[in-house]
Design a binder for these strands. Structure first.
Lengths: 152, 152
DNA sequence: GGATATTATATAGGCTCCTATATAAATCAA
DNA sequence: TTGATTTATATAGGAGCCTATATAATATCC
């Protein structure tokens, strides 16, 4: 039970993380747009980067989004020629999703543009500080994942 | 120019922050919903928590969202009886927005519920680690804000 | 004072997410 | 083998965010 002192949005991780997330999204959007991607698509791109194929379900699980979010995303990506859907020969319900050649070709340049932006975001951070931040964020995500799973 | 080694989503701050942000939002939503709020409204609630009134423009600036996002949010909040819009006597274009009594009454319980969730998210973190995380996030946000402002 | 900027909101359109629910194929059990 | 359950995707509906643009009121500058 902590005292009901007045609230400071900027000393809690949650709002700081929300702000950072939105800023990263806006900046990332600008950087990947020239290559025909949008920022939310990157987890899918990442998972399929070697040219392999995955089901929608596996993509959703590994990208940690809900299945309907993934379905919608894949529809847009298919519409934009980034992704191909093929019926799974072993399961009539499922699809196998893979990146198109066009998408694969644009990957290296896209990633370079994005990396450059991420470097700028960490201007003034020592290597140790970056590692510290990443480590703390990983632990935070582990806690959060558990809470989401337990419906806490 | 760094080597094009294979990509790891989990050693970059940006995707980790995006994941954490989404988890916080999902968990926070569950916690504040019983009180009639939704998680995205909290910056507005926070800014108006003492019963004062602000223009939409000031709310948007201080909550660091774009004006149209704020306009939409306020429409929903007005619809839900959380906020009141009054014409600004000094400026025919502007409105003065304030929380309704109903919203003000539910504030303490809402904040308590949210704080509890945030504590759980930081389970296993020492006080120093929390301060470290907050400090690093603040610096990161400063960088990001600058980049957004400079259209970088 | 009247034309021209600037400023405060509003609207349109789209993306990324979420929850809840429907549909269709596969699996399991009796 | 058929009926019930589980599983993979789809659809509906909505929040929250963004960019681009329209509208209306205020300021500014001849």
């Amino acid at each position: 039970m902590q005292p009901m002192i007045d609230w400071n949005l900027f000393s809690n991780p949650a709002p700081l993380i929300n702000m950072a997330s939105r800023s990263f999204a806006r900046l990332g959007e600008r950087r990947v747009k020239p290559f025909g991607f949008s920022i939310g698509q990157l987890p899918v791109v990442y998972l399929l980067r070697h040219g392999g194929a995955m089901s929608q379900k596996d993509l959703a699980r590994q990208a940690k989004t809900e299945q309907p979010s993934m379905a919608q995303m894949l529809s847009r990506m298919e519409r934009d020629g980034l992704v191909r859907r093929a019926p799974d020969p072993d399961d009539g319900r499922a699809q196998l999703i893979s990146l198109t050649e066009a998408a694969l070709e644009k990957l290296p340049a896209t990633r370079a543009a994005l990396d450059e932006g991420n470097q700028h975001a960490l201007a003034g951070f020592s290597e140790d500080e970056v590692q510290m931040l990443v480590g703390l964020l990983r632990r935070l995500n582990e806690n959060l994942d558990g809470m989401v799973a337990r419906e806490e």
